[in-house]
């Protein structure tokens, strides 16, 4: 019996056949079947660049704009879930209320993909210092830090507002607020290596594109992709 982190009800985690005979330690589920089912997986026809679910077509409207803006130099993003109301509530509780243990739910959702991913380096999108001070933790770092080794190449300037508080237009107009932290020691192969940017939600793509621009200006040879749990 375990207690679900979201609905507080007790549940019995399903046992898989492989789990009984395997010597590996399996990750214990943190949320119950019902709560897990509320998160909607991205399926069917998806944008070939940013993973967004679409009725038809190959590239979504957001990505077409980015294609124009960056002359085809788009950022390939992979996401797992749709940003539905269940996810909204989860992110609200995690980020706005600062319920730190909920990182375990987000870890559970992204664990499988990230442990199989093969990148030379994982770079988290940084939180603004003010928000970090207020919450007393870094939201992105807290999720991914336990899953993959992180290289904190990026930092965020003070006084930049959170994307979540703006509407779509304001989001897109947000100026660059990231800079490369020169004090971080990096492995040599990273100059030309494969890098995965990590964020929680991909809404307009503004944040992740800024993060990528910031990295490419310092490391032009880098191959950069991104991962966010939600699209």
């Amino acid at each position: 019996m375990r207690r679900c982190l979201l609905c507080e009800q007790e549940f019995i985690p399903p046992i898989r056949f492989a789990q009984i005979f395997s010597l590996k330690t399996f990750r214990q589920p943190k949320i119950c079947f019902h709560c897990l089912n509320q998160f909607e997986k991205l399926t069917g026809n998806r944008c070939s660049i940013c993973s967004k679910m679409m009725e038809q077509g190959i590239i979504c409207a957001d990505c077409q704009k980015w294609q124009k803006k960056y002359q085809g130099e788009v950022l390939h993003n992979f996401s797992l879930y749709r940003y539905n109301s269940a996810f909204h509530d989860l992110m609200l509780a995690y980020k706005r209320r600062g319920d730190y243990v909920l990182r375990e739910v987000l870890q559970e959702l992204s664990w499988e993909y990230l442990t199989k991913a093969e990148f030379d380096c994982y770079v988290p999108v940084p939180t603004s210092p003010e928000h970090r001070a207020k919450r007393q933790f870094d939201t992105i770092l807290a999720i991914y830090g336990d899953i993959v080794p992180l290289t904190r190449l990026l930092a965020k300037k003070e006084g930049s507002h959170a994307q979540g508080e703006k509407n779509k237009e304001e989001r897109l107009k947000t100026p660059q607020s990231f800079f490369v932290d020169k004090t971080i020691k990096i492995k040599e192969n990273i100059q030309i290596g494969k890098v995965l940017l990590l964020d929680d939600i991909y809404t307009t793509g503004r944040t992740l594109y800024h993060a990528r621009d910031c990295l490419t200006s310092s490391f032009p040879g880098m191959h950069i992709e991104s991962f966010s749990i939600c699209r």
Binding site: A93, R97, G98, D99, Y100, V101, Q136, F137, A142
Partner: peptide, 19 residues
Amino acid sequence: ECKLPSGKLYCRACIGLGR
């Protein structure tokens, strides 16, 4: 029971009213 990275405890039960 829950802790922040600093090791300080915080209450989940009444977090809706501010942590």
